[in-house]
Design a protein around this nucleic acid. Structure first.
Lengths: 199, 199
DNA sequence: AAGAATAGTATACCCTAGTATCTTAAAATG
DNA sequence: CATTTTAAGATACTAGGGTATACTATTCTT
């Protein structure tokens, strides 16, 4: 189908081709959501062959996640510092809602459950190569609270640091909607008690 | 009423057929695990047609879950009462490990993530018709603690009551193994602080 | 520049979840 | 019984994830 002598006289390779695929993937995701997103259609729109996709992404959910991380709403890396642990956590998690608002969480549910087949919950918000932004942000928020004497970070095990991501993902998978009210409840009923627990 | 209990009924129906299918499913699950468990093979072993399976179970994960709930290790419904919230929780959750030990959690991982596509985490341990044993057990354990004055149950929101299931499932999906040590850490670092938090 | 190595293109293929269809046994109804 | 309704049997089919293969354009190496 791709006429080599037309728009693309040359055969695309490497980053060029990769970007073309990701753009097509992003476009299709927005149009039909994850469930109806097919690898064949992405390939077709990118004028690429299916093996090109699979050479870069091991599976459909991985391609979709990469496209969202590249073109979707950026996670704001600025760490809130309101002088209050509760409020910092709420502000930060409200940023995450943006991604799910954009599509409607039901359009992403399948993506999340597919992703869980290959990666742990705590890494769902990580780009494949980079570090987990969400977790490091939580750590910084906690360090701020520590300076104010609200808790002692050194005492928090890894499992506890992962808790915010786990709870967030759980809401997406369960309720298919994460509102500001839900965030506040999670913070009040679970996160603050756990973070500030005395040993 | 015609009583036609022939020795070799030509065509099985209802419960007979259903049990035959579930037995074949259970057998196959033990042999190959969930990933390589196929509907066609179950049908073949049960001498049944695929539509028979789909008339009863909407999807593969549902059939597998039903077979495990029917033939797998029974969840012990006795509620521990050690006089201590922490210990009650630990004892109870150690019972759950049996199911995953039996197969090796990696053989069940796909099942859990598939199930999450259709039901919330809190219901993963429920039989399709019955109530959620796990959650009611947790509630009873908490009521015992309340009698001892360790906490006030009325103040615990639903999300908090679901937390044990959520954390357990998360470990299965993430680490693919839930040991007694992990259970103890979850109880100590998360559950007890949350359950006993003062508002 | 020639040849090797790499990574596209095009296409066919496999596998399995899930569905549709048509025939027919068996049960329910009366 | 005769008739109607239900559900099993057999089988073909669709759709989509993922792989294999044969070939060729581009780039790398010498």
């Amino acid at each position: 189908m791709p006429k080599l002598e037309a728009d693309h006289p040359k055969r695309r390779r490497g980053a060029d081709l990769e970007n073309a695929v990701l753009s097509s993937a992003w476009e299709l995701l927005q149009e039909v959501g994850y469930q109806d997103f097919t690898m064949a259609e992405v390939a077709k729109r990118a004028n690429a062959a299916k093996p090109v996709l699979y050479r870069r992404w091991s599976e459909k959910s991985s391609l979709a996640a990469t496209a969202i991380l590249k073109f979707g709403p950026k996670l704001d890396v600025t760490i809130p510092d309101t002088g209050n642990l509760r409020q910092d956590l709420i502000e930060f998690f409200n940023q995450l809602i943006k991604i799910f608002d954009m599509f409607g969480a039901e359009k992403l549910k399948g993506l999340v459950t597919d992703r869980l087949k290959s990666i742990p919950m705590g890494k769902l918000f990580s780009a494949s190569n980079s570090e987990n932004k969400l977790q490091t942000a939580v750590e910084q928020i906690l360090k701020q609270a520590e300076k104010r004497g609200e808790l002692t970070v050194a005492e928090l095990p890894l499992r506890v640091l992962h808790l915010p991501s786990v709870l967030f993902i759980n809401e997406v998978v369960d309720q298919e909607a994460v509102t500001r009210e839900v965030i506040a409840q999670i913070v009040d009923d679970i996160l603050v008690p756990v973070f500030t627990a005395k040993k």
